[in-house]
Structure formats: C-alpha cells, structure tokens
Simulated assay, not measured.
Amino acid sequence: MALFFFLTAQSQNKDLPDVGIIPKIVVKAIGVNTDIQGIIKNDSNLFKTLSSELIIISNMGAKNASKAEQKDNFSIAPDEVKIVATKNINVADTDNIIVLFLIYEDEKLIARDRKELRRQKNDPNVSDGLEIKGLVVENVRSKVGKDFYDYFYQQFTLKNPESDQLVKVEEQLGIGIGTRIQIKVQEDLVFESFARPNEEQLVNLANSAVARVLQYFKQKERQKQLLRQF
C-alpha cells in the first residue's frame, strides 16, 4: 500500500534566549526510506562546544509507538554550518512521526526545532513517500561538485524556502578551467559558474547560488500574484 505524508513545522525557540545557534531538521525521503538530519548554523561570533539530541517518535499514542534517540557532542566555529546528527528510518507502517532536535550548552537547552510527518491518503498531488518543500537533487561527478552541493544544500535548507519547485544541482566536467556547476529550478537555468577545489571559493559560490535561487522564487511568486489580478 502506498503511503503519503505531509510535513509541518513549528517554531520552537520563542521561549528560549537568542544565542545565535540555529537548528534545522532536514528530511530527505525516497519511497518509504527517510533520512532525517539535524543541521546547526552558528550565527554568533563565538566558538561553541555543544551537544545535540535527535528524538524520533513514531505512531505516538498507538500501541505500536516507538521512540529513538541519538545524542552527539560537537564543536562549531562562528558562521559554520554543520550536520551533527543523521538517522535513517522506514515509514512503511507509520501513521505519524514527530522529530525533535534539541541543542544544549553546559547541559542547558538553548535551541530546538520540531517537525511532524503525518500520513495523508488518496491525494493525487503527492507521490509516494514524503511531500517536502525545498527539495534539492544532485547529479554531480567529482569531489568539487559534491563539496559544492553540500555547501549549497546546507545553506538552502537553512533559508527554509517555501517553494515546492524541484531544484537540481548539476555538474559538467571541464578540462583545465575547473568544473561547471549549473542550478536549475524545474528546467529553468538560474545559476551557472565554474568551480575549483578551493573551500572558500566553493562556499562563496554556494551562497551566491542560494541567493539567486531564492530571487528566482520571489520573481515567480510575483508573476503568480500578477496573473491572479487579471
């Protein structure tokens, strides 16, 4: 039986002090297999030593309810983005999933994120697995391409884009001048540049690419609003 899920998110930091730590739960779904990642951005100017707790509760309130926990310690530099927790789950027999991502400093809770995944049947607009906004896929061939994709993906998901359009990161290998990176939204080319094996250059390139994609989303949304007026 095909399973269909929709995903909801809630802001969970209103009652916590702003310490410049931004947690983000990212869900990647392929059929009934789902990767859940906990990503941290250090938006402060301080080096931090922190701990995280990723909690996944399945079928809460049912007889077959289950709970999985993963705890990790990590350090993070100013302006750094880091994946600190990863968990793979199977959602074949799951009615709902609650994911909590908690960040601690000196055993004190300083930031958190929360997401819910619920089963939604018979929706023709949803394909098997999880319907997730901000979906990014890649077709890269080299380490440079993979590094660029990782930097782009981390920054893109932290921006929490509302668009449901598919973003594709593609690579065309070059000779002598580096590798060519292309980013398409659906089939529209919105960003293209050469990339070289230099971390600073790749990070800056990824940030520019994210800004270009978000600008494209805004343009498309303005066009939709104009069409609604006529």
Rank of each mutant, 00 (worst) to 15 (best):
Arg118Cys: 07
Ser75Gln: 11
Ile103Arg: 03
Arg118His: 08
Ile110Ala: 06
Lys121Cys: 07
Ala68His: 10
Pro124Gly: 02
Ser66Tyr: 07
Leu102Met: 08
Ala111Asn: 06
Asp113Val: 08
Pro78Gln: 06
Asp123Cys: 08
Ile110His: 02
Gly129Tyr: 04
Lys87Gly: 00
Gly129Lys: 06
Glu69Pro: 00
Ile76Phe: 06
Arg114Leu: 14
Leu117Gln: 09
Ser66Gln: 07
Ile97Gly: 00
Asn122Lys: 09
Lys67His: 10
Pro124His: 02
Lys108Asn: 12
Ile110Tyr: 05
Glu116Leu: 15
Leu109Ser: 00
Ile103Trp: 03
Glu105Gly: 03
Lys108Ala: 13
Glu107Asn: 13
Thr86Asn: 14
Asp72Met: 09
Arg118Met: 12
Ile97Phe: 00
Asp123Pro: 04
Ser127Glu: 08
Asp113Lys: 08
Glu105Trp: 02
Phe74Cys: 02
Arg114Glu: 13
Ile76Thr: 08
Gln120Ile: 14
Ser127Pro: 01
Val99His: 02
Asn90Asp: 15
Lys115Trp: 09
Ala92Asp: 08
Asn96Leu: 10
Pro78Leu: 01
Leu102Ala: 05
Glu69Gly: 00
Arg112Asn: 07
Asn64Arg: 00
Lys87Ser: 09
Val99Met: 10
Leu100Gln: 11
Lys67Phe: 09
Val81Trp: 04
Tyr104Trp: 12
Val99Gln: 08
Val91Gln: 01
Val84Glu: 05
